[in-house]
Structures are given as structure tokens and as C-alpha cells.
Amino acid sequence: MSIDSVFVHKMWDDNELSKMVDGGVPFPMLSDAGGRVGKVFGVFDEEAGVETRGRFIIDPEGVVQGFEVLTPPVGRNVNETIRQVQAFQLVRESKGTEATPSGWRPGKVTLKPGPELVGKVWEVWKTNMAFD
């Protein structure tokens, strides 16, 4: 979503993005003229008149599970976004019985919070597991 019109989105997809992604961008490219939606999400930069690099993860109930906002010159890490979605999905499927520690990615150990785990995390989770 950006302040550009849908017409500019089409030109960008036709002329540039479709050269990076076969068939062009598959998902909707949203237009937010005037930044009205961006203001509500807290990512509209009034001075510059544009939206900053905000990224929101919203669950099936419509609840915001996480967000990240960057200033324009630095791009996002898509892998990290996917990792976070996978983690939130795991937690949701476990109905909150599992939690994902720092550095978790699919295949790594999860934590099962409960009385037995208090003070024992050091036994099941090591600091090197925070890194890939």
C-alpha cells in the first residue's frame, strides 16, 4: 500500500515489477491517496507526504500480532516476516500451549510454558539457538 494511484501501480507492475516476478505482483497493490489509511496505522509521514515502510501481521481474527516500521532507505527482510508468521501460526495451532523462543524457526525446539519450566529454560534452550 502506498499513496500512489492504482494507475501508477499498474504502470509499475507492467513496466518494472513484472520483470522481477513472473506474471507480475500476485497480490493486491493497494492505493491510499492522501494517506488516510496510513495515518490510522501510524505510518504516514505528514512532512514527506508518503508512507514509511510499515509491515503488519494480522491474524484470522483481525488482530494485529506484530508490526515493524522502517524509514524509507532500508528494505525489509522477507524471510524474517515469513518466520514470524510461521511462529504465530504454530502458537495459534497449539492453542497457546507452545511458545517460540528467540531465534526459533520451523524445526527448532519450542517451549511449553508451565510450572515445570520455571527456572529450567536454560536446560532446554541455549543461547546459540538464538542464531541461525
Binding site: 500500500m1 502506498s2 499513496i3 500512489d4 492504482v6 494507475f7 501508477v8 501501480h9 499498474k10 504502470m11 509499475w12 507492475d13 506474471g23 507480475g24 505482483v25 500476485p26 497480490f27 493486491p28 497493490m29 493497494l30 492505493s31 491510499d32 489509511v37 496510513g38 496505522f41 505510518v43 514527506a48 508518503v50 508512507e51 514509511t52 515502510r53 510499515g54 509491515r55 503488519f56 501481521i57 494480522i58 491474524d59 484470522p60 481474527e61 483481525g62 524509507p72 525489509r76 516476516t81 508468521v85 504465530f88 501460526q89
Partner: peptide
């Protein structure tokens, strides 16, 4: 919000995506 998707101009409402995981990415400009 109005949107462009795969050759069509469509209207997108966030609440129509209830039941799915949604990622919204804002960016400064095309």
C-alpha cells in the same frame, strides 16, 4: 482501498480477509 491486481482494478476491504492471515506492507512510493 482501491487496488490493482493482475490486470484488474478492485476494491479491497480488510475485514473481508477475516479467517486468513494478512500481511499489509506500506512503502513510500512506486
Amino acid at each position: 482501498a482501491p487496488a490493482y491486481q493482475q490486470g484488474k482494478f478492485v476494491s479491497v476491504k480488510l475485514s473481508e480477509y477475516l479467517g486468513k492471515w494478512v500481511l499489509i506492507c506500506f512503502y513510500p512510493g512506486d
